[in-house]
């Protein structure tokens, strides 16, 4: 069953003078399993949107269906208990979800609430810490709030991984990670999706993250969804990028700039190999030459 949003709307402090539009009338179906990225300017409604997907926020209008849960403004919080375990959420600021006295207890919090034996909890905690690149022995007794920024992000990620949720919602998961840590986490996300068919919904301002990971992209603007579709279709279409004010991933920027210089390049997709293939092909192909007649080996070119 797809995740289905119908006219999903959230107005903060609705009906008061402080009313503030969060998201407005979003209609969307997300077919699982999938990796979806949500992009858009600061304040465009991304966080508000995803917080509906694990019941943290309830719509002020419209509804959302996720697995067996149907949530609208009347839904009681009590019926959403199981949803928090089904859908793991990593917050935009890790400080907002770190509250136990030690790193160990913080990561163990979710599994303990699932009534697992303490030995199984321990196994999951150690596994999750290893997955996010934290040394279990070195920091398990430390306070999660007395860590560096990137270490906090890793603890928050580990806490959600330890619950082994079916779906994960990640609000800017690579912010604060050092470059190698970022690559490791991207790889982890991809493998969770490929190995366990986990659905991943992530918010990111890093278009390279998105090009590497996401099959589909949602673009938010001023509380509304202005685009939903395949990520390659969006990023390879210069007109759309301009229309929505979106910066392309670096590889794709290169494609667009070469196209502007008359190169005939059509990458098959967004991953780096596809981009490089297309550029190298474009290099050996003159603008007006149909691809079937182009020389196959560059060595031929020097001959009279």
């Amino acid at each position: 069953m797809p995740i289905t949003l119908r006219q999903l709307t959230h107005i903060y402090h609705a009906g008061t003078p402080m009313a503030q539009q969060g998201i407005v009338a979003i209609d969307l179906e997300i077919t699982e399993p999938v990796i979806v990225a949500i992009i858009g300017q600061t304040g465009s409604g991304k966080t508000t949107l995803i917080q509906h997907m694990n019941g943290l926020l309830k719509p002020t209008d419209g509804s959302i269906q996720i697995d067996e849960w149907h949530i609208d403004r009347q839904t009681k919080t009590a019926v959403l208990q199981g949803l928090y375990q089904r859908v793991g959420m990593v917050f935009q600021y890790p400080e907002h979800q770190l509250f136990e006295a030690t790193v160990y207890d913080d990561i163990a919090y979710g599994p303990r609430n699932m009534n697992l034996s303490e030995s199984e909890v321990a196994e999951r905690v150690v596994q999750a810490m290893t997955m996010v690149g934290l040394d279990p022995d070195a920091i398990r007794h430390r306070s999660p709030l007395q860590l560096s920024g990137g270490q906090k992000r890793r603890v928050a990620l580990a806490g959600v991984l330890a619950m082994r949720p079916q779906k994960m919602i990640l609000d800017e998961p690579t912010v604060g990670l050092d470059p190698q840590g970022r690559e490791a986490i991207l790889q982890l996300i991809r493998s969770l999706h490929e190995t366990w068919q986990m659905t991943i919904i992530l918010i990111s301002h890093n278009m390279d993250d998105i090009a590497q990971l996401a099959d589909r992209v949602i673009v938010m603007k001023e509380g509304r969804m202005i685009y939903e579709g395949a990520s390659a279709a969006l990023f390879l279409d210069q007109a759309k990028l301009l229309q929505f004010g979106i910066t392309a991933p670096y590889g794709v920027q290169l494609v667009h700039q070469l196209r502007a210089k008359g190169w005939p390049i059509e990458p098959q997709g967004l991953n780096e190999e596809q981009i490089l293939d297309a550029i190298i092909e474009g290099m050996h192909r003159q603008t007006d030459t149909p691809s079937s007649t182009r020389p196959t080996a560059p060595a031929m070119e020097g001959e009279p």
Binding site: I39, G40, Q41, T42, Q92, G149, E172, V175, G176, H205, M207, G245, T247
Partner: peptide, 11 residues
């Protein structure tokens, strides 16, 4: 890391 959560154009 003060602009880490600002959109690329804003940054």
């Amino acid at each position: 890391e003060a602009t880490s959560m600002v959109d690329p154009e804003g940054k």
